[in-house]
Structure formats: structure tokens, C-alpha cells
Simulated scan of single mutants.
Amino acid sequence: MAFSNPTRDEIKQILTDAQVIAVVGLSDNPDRTSYMVSAAMKAKGYRIIPVNPNAESILGETCYKSLKDIPEKVDIVNVFRRSEHTPPVAEEAVAIGAKVLWLQLGIHHDEAVHIAQNGGLKVITDRCIKVEDSILLPNGKSKS
């Protein structure tokens, strides 16, 4: 059966419930999409945890070399890596007990999807988390 992303209502619920987003491949270069998207998500109230083995801190947050090094619970693993590099990220996302594996716009890998789904994670691929958040929660995450 072919993969399909959750419905817009399900994605809205995922974003509403999420507090902590680990961003794999977050660049410390402000001109990179990963930086701009993560800065916008941080401004919207999400806690951003950078996963980048080549940086000390990004967006004022401590960087971690891998998902397994993060000392707190992660809701969403947001991935800015080429598709072929996503299966190991999916394995780590399962190992740390994340709730969602989110592969950014232009990223999809059937094996990564399979790994994450078999590990109990919800999976979203080929979608930009910032765009979805802007459309689905334009006024922020208030649950009023």
C-alpha cells in the first residue's frame, strides 16, 4: 500500500500537541532553509533542538551530535537531510521514542517511512513544517 501523509486535521493536531522539535540537519547559516524554518518555528513557541555534529549551538540552543544524545523527550523529529540519509534518522527517532518523523519538503524515502511506522511513529514526508504550521495554526498554538 502506498504511503500517504496524515490528513490536514491530523497534522493540525500533531502541531498543536507538539512542544519539542529536534531538527536533524539544522544549519548554523542564517541563509539556509533549515535555519529560517527553525527560527520561525521557535518564534511560534516550539522548543527547537538542533542536531548538527559540526556546531556548538544554533538559534541559542545547544547542538547535539545525534538524536540519541538529546537528554529530553522529543515530539517531532524534523529532517533536513537528503532522502538517502533518512533511514538511520528514522531508526534513531524510533529509539528515542519520538512521536513523529517529519521529512521536509522534497524529502521522501520508503524505507525511512517503513522504519518509523513500524516503530509506532506518525510520518509526514515532502511537506514543510513551517508552511503547515502557518496554514493550520495561523494564530499560534492556543487551544481556546
Rank of each mutant, 00 (worst) to 15 (best):
H109Y: 10
G25P: 12
V89L: 05
V77R: 04
Q19T: 15
K65C: 04
T125Y: 02
T16M: 12
I96G: 05
R47K: 15
L67A: 02
A2S: 15
V131E: 06
M41C: 10
R47S: 10
V123L: 02
D126S: 12
E72S: 11
L103K: 03
Q117L: 09
H108P: 03
D17V: 00
P30N: 05
G25E: 03
P50H: 01
C63F: 07
A116R: 08
A116I: 10
V20D: 13
R8G: 01
P138K: 00
R81I: 07
T7G: 13
A98N: 02
Y46E: 11
D17I: 00
R32A: 09
Y46H: 11
I11W: 04
T7M: 07
G119K: 09
K44F: 09
D28G: 15
H108I: 12
I11C: 03
K141D: 08
E72V: 14
Y35M: 02
G140V: 12
Q19Y: 01
S4G: 02
A55R: 11
A98Y: 01
A2G: 11
V100F: 05
N78T: 09
Q117N: 07
I124N: 07
A55Q: 10
V20M: 01
R82F: 07
L121Q: 05
C63K: 08
P30A: 04
I124S: 06
K65S: 15
D17T: 01
A98R: 00
E84V: 13
E10K: 13
K143S: 14
I58D: 08
S142L: 13
I124D: 07
K12Q: 12
A39R: 15
V123C: 04
S144T: 11
S83K: 05
D69K: 06
E61R: 09
V89Y: 02
D9Q: 14
T16Q: 13
S83Q: 06
R81V: 07
E91N: 10
C128M: 06
P87E: 00
T7S: 15
P30F: 05
V89Q: 00
V79Y: 09
I115D: 02
I124K: 06
V20Q: 03
Q19I: 05
Y46G: 12
S142A: 13
I11D: 03
N29C: 10
I21R: 02
R81Y: 11
N52L: 11
N139F: 14
F3S: 08
Y64N: 04
A2M: 13
V24H: 06
E91Q: 14
A40E: 15
E111D: 13
K12F: 02
P53W: 05
Q117F: 01
A95S: 15
K73N: 13
A90Q: 01
S134D: 14
V24N: 04
A18K: 01
A55F: 05
P88W: 00
Y46M: 11
H114S: 14
L121Y: 10
G45I: 10
T33Q: 08
I14V: 14
A95H: 09
K130T: 12
N118A: 15
L105C: 00
T86N: 11
T125V: 15
P30R: 03
D69N: 12
V100R: 01
H114D: 14
H85W: 12
L101N: 07
A43G: 14
P138Y: 01
Q13G: 06
P30I: 06
V24E: 04
A39Q: 15
E92Y: 06
K73M: 09
K73C: 05
D126R: 01
I70K: 02
A116W: 11
V37M: 10
I49A: 07
K141N: 11
A93G: 09
K122R: 14
G45C: 11
A55T: 12
